[in-house]
Amino acid sequence: MQDWTADILDCIPRLRRFAYTLTGDTSDADDLVQICLEKALRKSSQYTDGGDIGIWLFKIMRNAFIDEKRADGRKPNFVELDHPTSMAQPDAAPAPDTMFAHGEVMAAITALPEDQRMVVALILVNGHSYKEAAQILDVPLGTVMSRLARARRRVEDKLAAERRIA
């Protein structure tokens, strides 16, 4: 097995986590990983030796996810509000006094707009740096930061709301 192929295979656990965070479903996640791998293998000549194969693969997966959503007739619900909108102080929302079930958390994540879900998946779940996430998503660093800030707030609000209902 060539090292290049081994590198691809070694990325699969992280690709699965990325796909799972995007889709919220393990079966859909594996379908997405499969599509990503098949595209990567077909496009292997486009990979530049010495480049970060992880970034290359995650770009392919991101594009595959968007393509799949389009094919499903559901446009990605990107939200572009990349500038702070108020001068309010951070509020003192109640900290989680008990931990949330994983299902609750995944539901809150999959309720995020895709652009925010992607930064959550890359940075918080997979541990990519903000810079790497910006490369993968092909957006400026500031956009990554603002999307992640918004995503954090939304997930917290969603979980807090669930807790209040419960």
Partner: peptide, 14 residues
């Protein structure tokens, strides 16, 4: 992939 059946001939070797 592990068995190498999917490796494209153009795949770079590192």
């Amino acid at each position: 992939v592990e068995r190498g059946k999917h490796i494209a001939v153009t795949a770079p070797v590192r």
